[in-house]
Amino acid sequence: MAKYEILIKAVTIQKLSYGEVAARYGVSKTLVHKLHHRWLVEGDAAYEPRSRRPRSSPTRTPDRIRERVLALRDELIALGVDAGADTISEHLARERISLSRVTIWRILTAAGKVSPQPQKRPRSSWRRFTADRPNELWQSDFTHVSLSTGADVEVIGWIDDHSRYLLHLSAHPRITGHTVTDTFTASAHEHGYPAATLTDNGMVYTTRLARGGRGRGDGAGNAFETLLATLGIIQKNAEASPRASPRPQL
Rank of each mutant, 00 (worst) to 15 (best):
R66I: 13
E95S: 05
G215I: 08
R133S: 09
I159A: 01
Y205C: 08
L99C: 07
I6A: 03
T197I: 03
S17L: 05
D161I: 07
R66Y: 10
T30F: 05
L169V: 14
N237G: 08
T181K: 08
V204Q: 13
Q139A: 08
G232L: 00
R121Y: 06
L228S: 07
N237T: 15
T197W: 06
L108K: 12
H33S: 12
L72M: 08
V11P: 03
D200K: 11
R38Y: 00
D200Q: 06
L79A: 15
H189P: 00
H172W: 05
S170W: 07
T179I: 01
I6T: 15
H36Q: 13
E136Q: 15
S125N: 08
N222W: 06
I107V: 15
A22I: 05
E67C: 02
A22P: 03
W39K: 02
A188R: 01
T207V: 15
K3Q: 02
A45I: 05
D152H: 15
V81P: 00
V32L: 08
D152T: 15
L231T: 02
R123M: 00
G157K: 04
F142W: 12
E136R: 07
N135D: 10
D182P: 07
V180K: 08
P246C: 04
A223L: 14
T61Q: 02
K113L: 13
S89D: 04
A223D: 08
L31I: 11
F142Q: 03
V27M: 11
I6G: 02
H37Y: 14
L79E: 15
G157T: 14
G232R: 06
Y165V: 10
